[in-house]
Structure formats: structure tokens, C-alpha cells
């Protein structure tokens, strides 16, 4: 408030000092604790999802392993590397802000944003693939296709990611044409892991109840459990991607500030705080990658 400021103008010789603080040290400490409390809040926010993941992975290990095997570990791994690189450039942004080197700051922020965008781009590719394979767990949100269209599609022009008309990858399961007239979630990729587990004797009676009806394997019951995996996958990665988008917004603001030469050895806490947020989002992915993409992969030989 302009009316508030007059009495305390004598503080304003330090750049960025707000009226309620006595000195920059107090302000920086406050902002830093505040940011960490926000991160604690974020950890608990994602924690609810991790609990849900834990409960159902414990209940339906084979269905979750099947689901995992249909995510593309290459894209997931690539994204992990991309995010780690962006974390490095973010850390260097803080480093150069502390040094007061404006040009390097700007460069590092641009690189961070670039890698963040690449991450989201890869996510789009992955989501598109799920859309084309009928693996989005919401009825009607998948690509609709009748058998007749499959043949036509193969002839006509199509983008590379649209060409895939066979619902199988990762080297297992029967190959079937993609037929999905209403865009439902569908699982045409077999249940090899359940068979393996059954043979190997490590399919517990408790898990068996969830996939079998009347003593026989029930593909519809199994599909529901895989669908659960994809639901959790989309909520977790979707929320993570949302955090990435927010992070890109923060970075854009930071870029503007850095361009103006706001930050120096005396005043760089906005850079540091944005960095904390960015690294946090990276940490979430560090856990999401093995939990969603990798666990259960060793079952396939």
C-alpha cells in the first residue's frame, strides 16, 4: 500500500527489502523458510498419490507390472536425463546469480526452460501413444477405430505416431489390429505375467482372487486392474506435468527479471527459491520414473 510505505521509507535503500522486515538477512531467511514449508506441503500432496500407488501395487503386482511394461522405458529414461540436465542448468543459474553474471544467468534460464519444454514434448509423445493404443483409462477418450479404418489408415497419409495400428509392443502378447469403436480403455496385450506367476507358484491366493472368476482367468477383471495402473499413471504424471508448466511460468518471469539485471550477489533469493521449486519437481520425477516405468520389467524375458 502506498499509504503504508511513507513511514518506513528509510529501509528502502536495500534492493527488494519489504516493509515488514528489518534487514535483508531477515527477509531472506523468511522467504527461504516459507519456500521450504511450501515444499513440505507439496511433498504431502504427492504423498497421497504415492500411498494410493503403494496400496494397489501391493494388491495387484502382476497387473501393475503388465501396465509398467507398456510404458516406454526409453522415453521415460530420456525424460529423466532431460530433467536432470535442466536441474543442473537451474543450479548453475543460481550460481551465476550469486556471481551477478547477467548474461550467463539469462543463458542458463533459457536452457532450463528449453529442457523443461523438451520434457513436456516427450510427455505429449507418450500420451499420444497411449491415446493411439487405447490405454487412456477413461471411456471414450481413446482413439476410435473400427476394423475397416485400419486398412485405410495404412494407405493414407498419416503422421508417424498415427501409423501404429497394431496393439502390441514390448515384445509380448498377441498381435491384434487396433479395434476400438467407442474409444474405451482396452487391454489386448495378454496376461503373460499372470501365467508366469501362476506357473512359477508366486501368484498368491489373495492376488488370484482379483483376476479369476469361477476358477478361471477373467480378462475383464484383469483389465480393470491394469486400468487402475493407468489411472494412477495419468494422475501422477499429469500433476507432475502441471507442476512443470507452472515451473516454466516461474522461469519466464525469472528470465524477465534476470534480463533486467535485477539479481546480484546482494539480492538473488527469487532465483534461489525458483530453483528450489524446480529441483523439487525433478525429485518427484526421480521417484516416478522407476515406480511407474521400471518396476516389474524384470518379469519379461
Amino acid at each position: 500500500m502506498s499509504t503504508h510505505a511513507d513511514a518506513h521509507d528509510h529501509h528502502h535503500h536495500e534492493p527488494g527489502l519489504q516493509h515488514q522486515f528489518e534487514n535483508m538477512g531477515q527477509q531472506e531467511e523468511s522467504v527461504s523458510i516459507g519456500m521450504w514449508m511450501f515444499l513440505v506441503q507439496e511433498i504431502m500432496f504427492f504423498g497421497g498419490l504415492f500411498t494410493a500407488y503403494m496400496v494397489y501395487r501391493w494388491r495387484y503386482p502382476m497387473a501393475f507390472a503388465e501396465g509398467s511394461n507398456h510404458l516406454d522405458a526409453f522415453w521415460g529414461g530420456l525424460n529423466t536425463v532431460v530433467l536432470i540436465v535442466s536441474s543442473l542448468t537451474m543450479a548453475l543459474t543460481v550460481y551465476y546469480a550469486q556471481k551477478g553474471m547477467r548474461n550467463m544467468q539469462v543463458l542458463m534460464i533459457v536452457l532450463t526452460m528449453l529442457f523443461g519444454t523438451v520434457f513436456l514434448g516427450v510427455k505429449v509423445v507418450e500420451y499420444t501413444d497411449k491415446y493411439n493404443s487405447g490405454l487412456i483409462p477413461v471411456a471414450g477418450w481413446n482413439k476410435k477405430s473400427t476394423g475397416a479404418e485400419v486398412a485405410e489408415k495404412a494407405q493414407a497419409f498419416a503422421f508417424p505416431w498415427e501409423i501404429k495400428t497394431e496393439a502390441a509392443d514390448a515384445g509380448h502378447g498377441e498381435k491384434k489390429p487396433y479395434i476400438n469403436p467407442r474409444g474405451d480403455f482396452q487391454w489386448n496385450y495378454g496376461h503373460k505375467l499372470v501365467e508366469q506367476a501362476e506357473k512359477g507358484g508366486y501368484l498368491t491366493a489373495d492376488e488370484k482372487i482379483h483376476y479369476y472368476s469361477d476358477g478361471r482367468f477373467d480378462p475383464f477383471k484383469f483389465q480393470e486392474k491394469v486400468r487402475m495402473f493407468y489411472f494412477i499413471y495419468f494422475v501422477m504424471t499429469g500433476l507432475h506435468a502441471l507442476h512443470m508448466i507452472v515451473g516454466l511460468g516461474i522461469m519466464a518471469w525469472l528470465l524477465w527479471k534476470a534480463w533486467l539485471g535485477t539479481f546480484s550477489a546482494l539480492y538473488y533469493s527469487p532465483v534461489e527459491m525458483s530453483g528450489l521449486y524446480w529441483h523439487f519437481v525433478d525429485i518427484v520425477w526421480i521417484f516416478l520414473f522407476p515406480l511407474l516405468y521400471l518396476l516389474g520389467r524384470h518379469f519379461i524375458h
Binding site: 514449508m37 513440505v40 511433498i43 504431502m44 504423498g47 504415492f50 537451474m90 530453483g275 525429485i283
Partner: peptide, 30 residues
């Protein structure tokens, strides 16, 4: 990442505490 990129290693005890506490609370929930 936390120790070096997020500078926790050079931060005050309170930052350490909040980082550890949040994981402790996650552990409680799990």
C-alpha cells in the same frame, strides 16, 4: 539433489528439520 542443488548442506537446522520431517510424515502415512 537436496544436499547440493538445493543447498540444504549449507542451510540452517530448520531446513534440515523440515526436509526430514516431511519424509517422516510421509512414512507415517505409508
Amino acid at each position: 539433489v537436496m544436499l547440493y542443488f538445493m543447498h540444504v548442506r549449507w542451510s540452517k537446522e530448520l531446513i534440515w528439520l523440515s526436509a526430514v520431517a516431511s519424509f517422516f510424515w510421509l512414512l507415517i502415512m505409508f
